[in-house]
């Protein structure tokens, strides 16, 4: 196709959108809703996956002593745990340190600890492992030490996060498919209306020798432009919501602050830009093509 024909096709595609403002607006809104909802759930999935990967690599177990344990019993437990094969380092967190840490984590909500002293916190051991894949076995062994009533390792959290992530992935895909179907139907109807409104024009184009591509492309472009516009606006919306959430999250000094890390906006924006644009263009083009074949036979 010659350059001047491409320009004409672009002009016609834009004209289609402007002439059919209401339906174009509805189509755009549908693409927006689809992409914003899909984008927000995708953001959750990306973060869950990121954290499960992160946590998998933390070779750490926290073993808690019974709060009533005496110092010599604690020392014995310390020695026994230290001797477990695969433990490369062991650190004691005293009652006082645990109390201070809890106060720090609570931040403004420190008053929740009013009336309580350090005695309510157990002494704990932070075990560094040589290999994170032995977390479960070492945790079992630590639990076998007298006085140790609980041994947490990040792998437990990992499995929860992984399960959650899988579910969210299914929800995201189902939601995206459903909303995409609705968006495609609406775009398809918008383009169908444009095609019907321009039936005479199309007939004349055919009589004077316009090729099928020349007739089709303005309508494909119409869908494509709606898709891309929807994608661009929804990228900004999703990133804005994500940014506001991060600001809120970090300003709250959340209990999970050290446990759960969020993917940076700059990292997520690239993924979103690529996926949204492809998705938006896909919805737009597919919506246009499905509505045209019936009407544009030469």
């Amino acid at each position: 196709m010659k350059l001047n024909m491409i320009l004409t096709v672009f002009k016609e595609g834009l004209n289609n959108i402007l002439k059919n403002k209401i339906m174009s607006g509805i189509s755009l809104m549908m693409v927006l809703i689809t992409l914003v909802l899909a984008g927000l759930s995708a953001t959750v999935v990306v973060n869950l996956r990121y954290n499960s990967e992160n946590m998998k690599s933390i070779p750490e177990i926290v073993a808690y002593c019974d709060p009533d344990m005496q110092e010599d019993e604690i020392n014995k437990a310390y020695e026994r745990i230290k001797s477990i094969e695969g433990v490369s380092n062991i650190l004691i967190v005293t009652k006082e340190e645990a109390y201070q840490k809890a106060k720090e984590m609570l931040g403004n909500d420190e008053r929740l600890l009013e009336g309580f002293g350090e005695e309510i916190f157990p002494v704990s051991f932070v075990l560094t492992l040589e290999d994170a894949s032995f977390s479960a076995e070492i945790s079992e062994k630590a639990l076998g030490v007298p006085g140790i009533y609980k041994a947490d390792y990040s792998q437990e959290v990992v499995s929860i996060v992984t399960k959650l992530s899988s579910w969210m992935k299914v929800v995201t895909i189902a939601l995206s498919l459903l909303l995409s179907f609705i968006a495609v139907t609406i775009i398809s109807n918008t383009v169908k209306l444009t095609v019907m409104a321009r039936k005479n024009e199309i007939a004349i184009m055919k009589y004077v020798g316009a090729t099928e591509d020349f007739i089709r492309w303005p309508f494909i472009l119409e869908g494509m432009i709606l898709g891309v516009l929807g994608a661009i606006i929804s990228i900004f919306l999703v990133l804005y919501v994500y940014e506001q959430f991060l600001i809120y999250y970090y300003s709250q000094g959340s209990m999970f602050f050290n446990l759960f890390q969020f993917v940076k906006i700059s990292d997520i924006s690239v993924i979103l830009a690529v996926i949204f644009t492809a998705f938006g263009v896909g919805i737009g083009v597919f919506g246009s093509i499905t509505s045209m074949n019936k009407y544009l036979k030469l």
Binding site: N200, E201, K206, Y207, G209
Partner: peptide
């Protein structure tokens, strides 16, 4: 072929009773 039809039509002009102007 279908793809050749536009080129056939470019070699002819058509006028109708109802003018068919835009």
């Amino acid at each position: 072929f279908r793809s050749e039809i536009p080129y056939l039509r470019r070699s002819m002009g058509v006028v109708f009773q109802d003018f068919r102007l835009l």
